[in-house]
Design a protein around this nucleic acid. Structure first.
Length: 693
RNA sequence: GCCACCCUAGCUCAGUGGUAGAGCAAUGCUUUCGUAAAGCAUAGGUCGUGGGUUCGAGUCCCAUGGGUGGCUCCA
């Protein structure tokens, strides 16, 4: 006699265990028709699941109560659509081995192994989609069959797919008591797939779908295992929702920093210069310089000292730090001087031999620096330090070079040369906690000032099973605890992730998403007990003995390139006044106002503002349009009327109309205030308040 | 590095083996204008690069560079 509790708190009792579908039907015919699945005690299940015991039940439909697509409903639809796609592919591409096909946040994929040379291409999408449409039109039920582990494994061994056998083994290792198959239709006669489920009741419940792309993947994400083909798609309950989603994806592409970067002429990446090497054009350089000024002001307040170091260093420096051996594959190849090169050539040294000798240290060279820390460490070590001097905080906008894989490079977010707003703090152990909090406050200040609230915090810890990490485990424990405590002090949720630490220490990362949903690490703070050991750093303590300092590595922006890339998307290219490459554009109504317009321009420039004039031959309307497309914060339109009153007519970006006239002096003061306060004071808001409407 | 797709004028794109096109931008002229595109004209391309097939290649094939989306990697 199970009692079923519904989300509204009401209960229903049954004499014999009903299925979730029966309960839905008892609640109402409409719900029964709309039902896609069930949530039983919070677990997503098939609608056909029999409710043997008392439980909390929620019927899952395609729409939540707020009218938006329901996340669970979408999950069911997409996972089911992955099956339909797999069936269509197996039909059109015989010999395909299925591997794994989950639902995703915005769609689904299915990994498959195709016979050599028989993989589909994007040209096959239309045929596959029409095959899928047929399966959906047939509206065949998703039928679940459970087999005991032994019988299930036997069936899989008979069928012989190593991928499915592996999936089953993992299910077994995960504690599953049975193995389940889903047939689209009648078991024995229709297509089936080993699957944990759940699914929608029948294929007809998949409303609208689209195959979106092909990619390669590795079995279990391991590049030493089989190369698979991953087919991506997405599905929604209705065609309208699918179209809305696709439109939204198109819309997001318009604020992609690569698109806006070109449109607004913020940066350029040139084939002739090299992949992943960013050329900051004048307008983008302004944004970067303003950000650097902003953080530099704050560093002075916090007692940092600015240093400059070269772009290369001796290879041995990076052998000592560990960077060269640990990241050999992802660095630019070492630079070897002419004499050494001639000598090696005379000896007939092969490339392989050269690599060996560079590794062992019997040949030295120089390395484009992959990190700034070794240089800063040598500055710290260049003079003795008393415990009274600590913390020593050395800051540099340091440019580093990394040999990223070619397929990974793109835009400003993943590049081969980038500038970190880097600093290294050499601290006593008793100072670690306070200094960490100081570093985090910088990151918070940056995110707060720029209005970037949509980030997550990740504490990256070492993976005890990996041999990638250097140093004493007890120091690691201390460092990890320090990071955890500092992260707690932030007052925002954070996740702890094993295996995300740097090789020399744990870290706290700030991660944001770009417009197409990819995550990027921006700010980072890392605790390091190991490099001070490797470089034998010390300071003289109060006891007149030598002590080992602890290092903190931190970069609140992370890399200027990546940060600006994300920032362009955050503002959709419409930078606030203090960052805007062009802050004010003066628009004379006609040549008759040219003299006064020049006067306004000169006044703006002497006030330290980035101002230009557009005295082109176009009508004002056209020039306003140009300026709007350039996303310039303020337009100062001047005509004879303004000249007479020594005023300007203001138009602000984001407002559709002329805000009215303002005396020139007042405008200058307002814009300057907004600039120097980095947006704390806003001329626009003052101005808008003055307007009666 | 792997898989798929893409590369045509400064930009966005059309061009399905038969004489390289459009819009915007640029330049010149006319217009001197009060808040999101005035009019006319001109110029601009060995179709990423190198091979090949063909009577003929922007179009088909091969190689190579670059880009985009995934995978892997990311100090």
């Amino acid at each position: 006699m199970p009692t079923i509790t519904l989300p509204d708190g009401s209960c229903r009792s049954y004499d014999s265990p009903p299925t979730a579908a029966q309960v839905a039907a008892d609640i109402g015919a409409g719900l029964a028709k709309a039902a896609l699945g069930a949530k039983i005690n919070g677990t997503l299940c098939d609608l056909s699941t029999r409710l043997e015991h008392d439980c909390a039940l929620a019927i899952v439909t395609a729409k939540s109560r707020d009218g938006q697509p329901d996340a669970d409903g979408l999950m069911l639809i997409r996972h089911s659509c992955a099956h339909v796609m797999a069936e269509a592919i197996e039909r059109l591409f015989p010999g395909t081995a299925l591997v794994y096909g989950p639902a995703l946040e915005s769609g689904f994929y299915y990994d498959m192994a195709f016979p050599a040379g028989r993989a589909p291409s994007t040209d096959d999408f239309a045929a596959l989609e029409s095959e899928m449409a047929k399966i959906i039109a047939e509206n065949r039920p998703f039928t679940r069959t459970d087999l005991p582990l032994d019988a299930g494994m036997e069936k899989l061994n008979r069928e012989g797919s190593k991928f499915k056998i592996d999936n089953a083994q993992r299910a077994r290792d995960g504690g599953s008591a049975t193995l389940s198959w889903y047939t689209t239709g009648t078991p024995g006669s229709n297509w089936e797939d080993l699957c944990r489920g759940p699914h929608v009741p029948s294929t007809g419940r998949i409303g609208a779908f689209k195959i979106t792309m092909l990619a390669s993947s590795y079995w279990k994400g391991d590049e030493s295992l089989d190369r698979l083909t991953r087919v991506y798609g997405t599905a929604f309950a209705t065609k309208a929702e699918l179209e809305a989603h696709l439109a939204q994806v198109e819309e997001a592409k318009k604020r992609d920093h690569r698109v806006l970067g070109k449109q607004l002429r913020l940066f350029h990446i040139d084939e002739m210069v090299g992949q992943g090497l960013v050329l900051w054009t004048p307008r983008g350089a302004v944004v970067r310089q303003e950000l650097q000024n902003f953080i530099s002001d704050e560093l002075r307040v916090q007692g940092y000292q600015q240093v400059f170091t070269p772009h290369i260093g001796k290879l041995d420096l990076y052998r000592t730090s560990g960077h060269f051996p640990y990241y050999k594959e992802s660095q630019f190849a070492p630079i070897i001087d002419h004499d050494e090169m001639s000598k090696l050539a005379a000896e007939g040294c092969s490339c392989g031999e050269l690599a060996n000798r560079l590794g062992s240290g019997s040949v030295d060279g120089y390395l484009l620096k992959p990190m700034n820390c070794p240089h800063h460490i040598r500055i710290f070590a260049s003079e003795p330090h008393s415990y009274r001097d600590l913390p020593v905080r050395l800051a540099e906008f340091g440019t580093v070079y990394r040999w990223e894989q070619s397929g990974e490079i793109g835009g400003l977010t993943r590049v081969r040369g980038f500038t970190q707003d880097d600093a290294h703090l050499f601290v006593r152990e008793d100072q670690v906690a306070d200094e960490l909090i100081g570093c985090l406050s910088l990151v918070k200040l940056i995110f707060g000032t720029l209005g970037m609230n949509d980030y997550r915090v990740r504490v990256g810890l070492r993976d005890p099973a990996s041999d990638k990490y250097v140093g004493d485990p007890s120091n690691w424990d201390k460092a990890e605890e320090a990071c955890r405590n500092a992260a707690r002090s932030l007052g925002v949720p954070f996740s702890e992730e094993r295996g995300e630490a740097a090789f020399y220490g744990p870290k706290i990362d700030f991660v944001v998403r770009d417009v197409i949903g990819r995550s990027w690490q921006l700010g980072t703070v890392q605790v390091d007990y190991n490099l001070p050991v490797r470089f034998d750093l010390s300071y003289i303590g109060a006891d007149n003995k030598q002590h080992r300092p602890v290092m903190i590595h931190r970069a609140p922006f992370g890399s200027m390139e990546r940060f600006v890339g994300v920032l362009i998307e955050h503002f959709a290219g419409a930078f606030p006044l203090w960052l805007a490459p062009e802050q004010v554009r003066v628009l004379p109504i006609s040549e008759k106002s040219a003299a006064y317009a020049d006067e306004v321009l000169a006044a703006l420039r002497s006030a330290g503002l980035r101002a230009t004039i557009d005295s082109g031959n176009e009508r004002v309307q056209a020039r306003i349009r140009d300026a709007s497309e350039a996303k310039i914060p303020y337009l100062a339109v001047v005509g004879p009327r303004d000249a007479e009153q020594r005023a300007v007519s203001i138009r602000a970006f984001g407002t559709d109309a002329n805000l009215g006239e303002l005396p020139l002096g007042e405008f200058l003061a307002g814009v300057t205030g907004e600039y120097t306060s980095r947006g704390h004071e806003s001329l626009k808001s003052k101005f808008v308040r003055r307007q009666p409407s």
